[in-house]
Amino acid sequence: MTLRVGAHASIAGGVDNAVENQREYSGNCGQIFSHSPQVWQDPNIGDEEAQAFREETETHGIGPWVIHTSYLVNLCTPKDDLREKSLDSMQQEVDAADTLGIEYVNVHLGAHTGAGVEGGLDNAASVLDELDVPEGVTVLVESDAGSGTKLGGEFEHLAEVLARSKQDLDICLDTAHMFAAGYDLSTPDAVEETLAEFDDVVGFENLACVHLNDSKHACGTNKDEHAHIGEGEIGEDGMRAFVNHDAIRAVPIVLETPTEDGRGFAWNIDRVRELRR
């Protein structure tokens, strides 16, 4: 079984440049932002760029790809104006994925900001249900570190959105987020227990992607800060157990690890390959 592992690649100079960037990291799948994630902005991908991205992806056998939505998107919000902006942004992202031949669009649920857990989950499902998702594109709901009123830190939140939405959704698990939210991954036994709980609550059949990141902070702190693979609080034993778990072996892995200490994505991708048996 071929290990599909890559990183979040820059699209600076054109979205097609993400393919060459991924090759420089030695990745064979990956993730992009279609625009700056800090602002409300159209993807604005030209036909030539899209064709080049598709061709380069096919030529070099890289995939699947994921588009990560803007950080401003908040599916759980009770505010009408933010809801409409989030819906519009999400629609543009799934359309961009269709243009680029990208399989997945990844989104955080966001914060309920006073609507309560049930209200927030209903809000998220209703926004997702208004999307016109092109055939061949799947929206992934990402697990969250769970700070403040953000939802997605509990597996039950993910399961409820899948159940409440009429869309055919899947899940992206982020290891650093899970760990920060209180799901231990630091030992082989902890990995087994956490993934068994995910299977029981959500189901492995709904897991389409993993964001593999170590954590700079302890389990249950709700602090989202990523570390190099095997060098954070999850550590080498936990990371090794996770990437070798039967339920993970066929799932594409995308890294969002830091560039620091003279190491970046290429070092971390090599590290994952070393840990994989």
Rank of each mutant, 00 (worst) to 15 (best):
V127D: 04
V202G: 04
D95W: 11
V5Y: 10
E274H: 06
E193K: 15
Q38K: 13
G148R: 10
I234C: 00
L128T: 04
A190K: 00
N244D: 07
G101N: 04
G153I: 11
I32T: 00
D246A: 10
I11R: 03
L121R: 02
G101T: 12
Q38E: 06
D246F: 08
L87T: 14
D246K: 14
K150H: 12
G114Q: 03
G203Q: 13
N123K: 07
N206D: 15
V117W: 11
F265K: 10
D168K: 12
P252M: 09
G6E: 05
F242E: 01
G146M: 12
M178F: 10
A97R: 06
L121K: 06
V201P: 08
E197I: 12
M239L: 13
T57G: 00
A50L: 06
E233A: 13
G152H: 05
D199W: 07
A180N: 04
F155N: 01
S26T: 14
V191S: 05
G220N: 09
G148L: 14
V19I: 13
D270I: 06
F204G: 12
P252C: 07
I45F: 03
E192F: 04
A52I: 11
A227R: 01
G262P: 05
L109F: 15
V191A: 02
G119T: 03
V15E: 09
A145H: 09
V39W: 09
G46N: 06
K85S: 02
N244W: 13
F265A: 13
Y25R: 09
R249C: 13
L212N: 01
H245F: 10
T257P: 04
S126G: 02
L212W: 08
D122L: 12
G238T: 09
G120M: 12
G13R: 02
E225L: 13
G30H: 02
V201C: 05
L128Y: 06
S143K: 03
N17Q: 13
D80Y: 13
N222G: 08
G61I: 14
V117H: 05
E193Y: 14
A96D: 06
T187G: 05
V133C: 00
G262Q: 03
D237R: 08
G116I: 14
I102W: 02
H68S: 03
G6F: 06
Y183V: 00
